[in-house]
Amino acid sequence: MNIENTRGRHRAPGRHNPLIELKLLARESAQPAMKAGAVVAATGGLVATFANPASADTLKPASGNVAAAASADSAAPAAVGPATAAAPAASSALSKIGFAPEAQQAVAQRVSTSKPEVIEDVQVQAQRAAAKAAAVKAAAERKAAAARASRDLTRRTLTSSTSSAKASFNGSVPGASAGMRASSNWATAGQCTWGALNKWYQSEGYYPGGWTGNAMAWASGARSAGYTVSTAPRTRSIIVLQPGVAGSSSVGHVGWVTAVNGNQVTMIEMNATAGAYNYDTRTVTLSGGMSFIYAP
Rank of each mutant, 00 (worst) to 15 (best):
T159Q: 13
S160V: 13
S160M: 11
S163I: 15
S164Y: 12
A165C: 05
A165G: 14
K166E: 12
A167H: 04
S168P: 02
S168Q: 11
S168E: 10
F169Q: 14
F169I: 10
F169G: 13
N170D: 07
G171T: 12
G171S: 14
S172M: 13
S172L: 12
V173Y: 06
P174W: 01
G175A: 11
A176I: 04
A178M: 00
A178P: 05
G179Q: 10
M180T: 10
R181F: 03
R181Y: 03
S184C: 00
S184E: 01
W186I: 08
W186D: 05
T188N: 03
A189E: 03
G190S: 06
G190E: 03
G190H: 03
C192P: 06
W194Y: 14
W194G: 03
W194N: 07
G195W: 01
L197W: 03
N198F: 02
N198D: 12
N198A: 13
K199I: 00
W200K: 04
W200S: 05
Q202M: 11
Q202S: 14
E204C: 10
E204R: 14
G205E: 08
Y206A: 03
P208I: 09
G209S: 02
G209K: 09
G209F: 04
G209T: 09
G210E: 07
W211V: 09
W211N: 06
G213F: 11
G213Q: 13
A215H: 07
M216K: 11
M216A: 09
A217P: 07
W218Y: 09
W218H: 12
A219W: 07
S220K: 08
S220Q: 14
G221A: 13
G221C: 13
G221D: 11
R223K: 15
A225T: 08
G226A: 08
Y227G: 04
Y227C: 05
T228G: 05
S230W: 05
